[in-house]
């Protein structure tokens, strides 16, 4: 049965909205922008049964932009890694569901949250898997503001050196970070050229289109690591939040919550 990735992504966004609003915590803007990537991976691209079983040849996913944990949690819960009711423990006393993924959460390969860590770990995983399990892929989802971390560029160099064609880097290119525009805070352009110069096969993809992302995510070029620049909109799903930097870490007011909820429900219906 063909899944409606767009509908699923908006359903998950509604859950994110409730988590953020109810617990007055989280990073709603980035969670909304990267949701379609998560949905494409977990509902179409990766073999989730293998991940559930912990098979050694399973695909690996690393949320390097760990602050978008609530988006990740809604997907993990919906895919049965833990009961959906646990989403309501987001950031509460003694929970595992912190604002950044902890290692105790079923389905989470590594705890993340300090930026610039996911890709080196992913490169290590890809090296470890390449010969033994050539069909297993490693997916690392990063932020665009995160690209200022030097450790990422160390890892880009290593990924090319070791010809990691089992590694897929996804950069959630929403062009906003906590202080403002990425091009003002620390210019990244021409990002595509930079990645190509570092030895990557680069795909620019409409990042809020789950089907397009699924196609990009399954592209492989022998001998080359893949980088997908997912061109997204921060706060995607409601004009209240869309493309506005303060929504990196803002909490909706009661009125905003109602308005965003209406927008997202409408999007679910129309999808």
């Amino acid at each position: 049965m063909e899944l409606n990735l767009r509908k699923i992504a908006f359903q998950r966004r509604l859950e994110v909205l409730d988590m953020v609003y109810n617990h007055k915590s989280g990073h709603i803007g980035g969670s909304m922008s990267c949701m379609d990537t998560l949905v494409a991976l977990y509902y179409k691209v990766m073999d989730v049964d293998k991940i559930h079983r912990g098979d050694p040849d399973r695909d690996r996913f690393i949320l390097s932009k760990g602050h978008c944990a609530e988006a990740y949690y809604t997907v993990l819960a919906d895919k049965g890694f833990f009961p959906k009711e646990e989403l309501d423990t987001f950031t509460v006393f003694k929970t595992h569901l912190a604002e950044h993924p902890t290692y105790k959460i079923p389905g989470v390969e590594v705890a993340t949250g300090a930026l610039g860590h996911g890709l080196p770990i992913g490169v290590g995983m890809a090296i470890g898997l390449k010969k033994q399990y050539p069909n297993a892929s490693v997916y690392v989802l990063m932020g665009d503001g995160e690209q200022a971390e030097g450790s990422i560029w160390e890892a880009y160099m290593a990924a090319a050196k070791y010809k990691l064609d089992n590694l897929v880097c996804i950069i959630d290119r929403n062009k906003l970070q906590i202080s403002g525009g990425t091009e003002e805070v620390m210019p990244l352009e021409n990002f595509e050229d930079k990645l190509e110069a570092f030895g990557f096969h680069v795909i620019k993809c409409p990042g809020n289109d789950g089907e397009a992302m699924a196609e990009a995510l399954t592209t492989r070029v022998p001998g080359k690591p893949l980088a997908i620049i997912a061109e997204t909109i921060k706060g995607y799903g409601s004009p209240v939040m869309e493309d506005k930097a303060p929504w990196h870490h803002a909490i909706p007011t009661a009125e905003q919550y109602e308005e965003i909820k209406r927008d997202l429900m409408k999007a679910v219906e129309e999808a």
Binding site: P56, V110, G124, M125, G128, M157, A158
Partner: peptide, 12 residues
């Protein structure tokens, strides 16, 4: 990168 890579490699 070396230490992060080591962590990833150990996970396999």
């Amino acid at each position: 990168n070396a230490v992060g890579l080591a962590a990833g490699l150990s996970k396999t």
